[in-house]
Design a binder for these strands. Structure first.
Lengths: 136, 136
DNA sequence: CCGCATCCCCCGCGATACTG
DNA sequence: CAGTATCGCGGGGGATGCGG
C-alpha cells in the first residue's frame, strides 16, 4: 500500500503536502537533511557526532532512504580507507525553506503543545483513575 | 526516548522544526489537519468519507493524538444519538501555512522524487541481480 | 453514530557484532 | 571508516466486532 509517492489524491486531492511529509516521515530524515543543509556536505562519521543520539546503522538507513528519494547524493571517493560524503540534491536543498516554516511554527507553538499535553493527561487522570499513559 | 515534545535540542539545536514534524509524524495526522483546515470543523463520519481509505478506528486514533497535542479541539454535543465535531485550535490552524509550503515543494519536486526512485532501483538492479526491493 | 477493545502484521528504531 | 547482518522491541495502521 502506502508505497512511494505514487498518486497524489488518495485523499483530499489538495493535500499534496503529504508527499513532502512522506519523504520526511521517518524519525531522523528531516534532521539529517537539515544538518547537511546547515553545514554543507558531510561524511557519515561527522553527521554521527553532529547529530546526537543516533546509531551508525540508523543513520545509514536514513541516508539510504534519502538517497532513494533523491534528497541526498552519495559521493564516494575511491580510496582506502573508505571515504564518502553526502550532499543535498536540488530537491533536498529546496526543502530547507518549508522546513524553516515548520520550525517557525514550532518555536511559536511548542509551549502550547506542551500545555495541551499536560492538560490532556490531567483531564484523563481525573476521569480514569488508572495510571498516566503516554500518547504520541 | 523520543517521547513527546520535551527537549528541543536533542540534536542540532537549530532543528526545532523536528517538533512540528513529530506532531504530524503519523500517517494521517497531516491529512486530517489539512482537511479540517480546508473545510472547517467536521464530524468524524464526514471526515471519514472526505478522506478516502482511512478506517474509523485509525481516524479516531489520529484525532485523539491531535487533540492530545492541542492541534484539534473535540466538541461534543450532549444528545442522542451522539454527535461530535472537531475543530482546529489556533496552533492547528497556524499549521496550514507551513503545510502549504511543504505542498508547494511537493508539487515542484514530486517528479524528481519519482525519477530518483526509479533510477535508484535501476542502479540497484544492475548491481545486485536480486529482485527489485522497496524502500521507504 | 461515536469510539472503544482485540488481534495481527509490518516496519522503523536501537544495540551489537562483523566484514572490507 | 563505511556499511551490513541479526535480533528484539515497541507502536502504528488496518480490519472487525461490541457497546453506549
Amino acid at each position: 500500500m502506502g508505497d512511494s509517492v505514487d498518486q497524489l489524491d488518495d485523499y483530499t486531492s489538495d493535500c499534496r503536502a503529504r508527499v513532502a511529509f512522506e519523504v520526511l516521515a521517518n524519525r531522523w530524515d528531516s534532521v539529517v537533511v537539515f544538518t547537511i543543509a546547515a553545514y554543507g556536505p558531510m561524511r557519515p562519521a561527522v553527521l554521527l557526532t553532529r547529530i546526537g543520539g543516533i546509531s551508525p546503522k540508523v543513520l545509514n538507513d536514513a541516508l539510504r532512504r534519502l538517497e532513494y528519494n533523491g534528497l541526498v547524493e552519495r559521493r564516494p571517493y575511491r580510496q582506502v580507507p573508505p571515504r564518502v560524503d553526502y550532499a543535498l540534491t536540488e530537491a533536498g536543498g529546496a526543502l530547507l525553506e518549508p522546513m524553516e516554516a515548520m520550525g517557525a511554527w514550532a518555536t511559536r507553538y511548542a509551549d502550547a503543545v506542551l500545555d495541551a499535553q499536560e492538560r490532556f493527561e490531567a483531564r484523563e487522570r481525573s476521569t480514569r483513575p488508572g495510571s498516566a499513559r503516554r500518547r504520541r
